[in-house]
Nucleic acid binder design. Sequence first.
DNA 1: AGTTGTACCAGACGTTTGTCTGGTTCGTCA
DNA 2: TGACGAACCAGACAAACGTCTGGTACAACT
Lengths: 222, 222
Amino acid sequence: MGRTPAGETRKRIFEFMRHRLLAGDPPTTREVQEQFGFRAVQTAREHLEALVAEGLLAKARSQGRGQARSQARGYRLPALLEQATENCLIPLLGRVQAGGLTTALEDPEGLLPIHSRFSEKELFALRVRGDSMKDAAIVEDDIVIVRRQANANSGEIVVALVEDEATVKRLRKKGRRIELVPENDAYDVIVPDPARTIILGKVVEVRRYFGTPPLIAPYTDA
Amino acid sequence: MGRTPAGETRKRIFEFMRHRLLAGDPPTTREVQEQFGFRAVQTAREHLEALVAEGLLAKARSQGRGQARSQARGYRLPALLEQATENCLIPLLGRVQAGGLTTALEDPEGLLPIHSRFSEKELFALRVRGDSMKDAAIVEDDIVIVRRQANANSGEIVVALVEDEATVKRLRKKGRRIELVPENDAYDVIVPDPARTIILGKVVEVRRYFGTPPLIAPYTDA
DNA sequence: AGTTGTACCAGACGTTTGTCTGGTTCGTCA
DNA sequence: TGACGAACCAGACAAACGTCTGGTACAACT
């Protein structure tokens, strides 16, 4: 029977699917059936296939062999399919004061879940200490997300290890020399000894959380 | 045969699972088997069950009835299980200049994928225009993530609709009156007409992207 | 030499789950 | 009034998939 107003149930089903899929828990056809009180699997299936036809859902490929049948729990969000490098966990390193090179990078608060175009392995996050980048709108307790790279262009904001201390500054190249420029009149430009300075990476993102701290997963792997 | 050095394959399997699960595409036991070239399903299964025993993986509950059997593609990341309200898509609204109340909130750039403790429905994101919050380290083109709420405490940063224009300011309450305080000496405090002012929500997060823009999903639903 | 533990293999059983065939009810439009 | 499509239902088949039983090979320790 055409019980519901037309497309109304369909929309609710899409919302349900979207939530489950974003949670990483793809439902089966029968779970959809039960969720919406259908007495036939086929009803749920027809709605789902209609959503696929509309392009709102996608079905996971049956990788490899025959393709007649889809896989179990195989509905996906098409937008997420395109961007494989979506969800990842990157180490969030605490505010480092000093210490050796290795210790400077091994004080993890945990793993920060982010969405990024970059590959997970080339990223890490660092909590900012001090106000030397105040005029670049980066302040104490901000989290900078850093892409590991040994070089950067002049003008980019980088994380550098100077004399075993990690610091966030704007990079300025003068010929073959480099300078680390704070964005705060109260601080002086650092002209580091190249032999004792390593560029850890380039800041690709800044985040600041008010009130509620970010979701952080416990640090598990190395 | 004890081919691999001990725990080496196990670690690689965990990495594989983690990637697949974060991508929202949980593998089957047999997919793990093929991925690692095992000739028996059981081998993959034993590794997976070992990871569950170590607490690195979890198995999805067979919700409801008997619990003897797990569901298909049922391995999950335990950290993600605990926090159901993880992954969500929130509308990113463009920089609004003017326009009616409704139009002010309906100029979506797309859907921004984020991880948050808040429920998806109470959140939206807004691109910041102008430098009136410069001293609070919020500048042009920043993205503020806002939790919808009609009231806020004094001192919190809010998004308010004043005379049909959306604006980010710090809220100050003076008795029954409210003030919207810019954090920039070049601007004056706004003492808005309460009848023509609505607090849209409170800023819970600020983001700034350098170089590479954020991942944004196309706007689909209403 | 025996024991123990890890990593692996072969094959099977039974549930889960996608898919199919065929049917009903209702609203809409010609 | 009939045709048609949308939404729904009943029941079944077959592939996918978790799980089990019973094995082998090898290293480490006693």
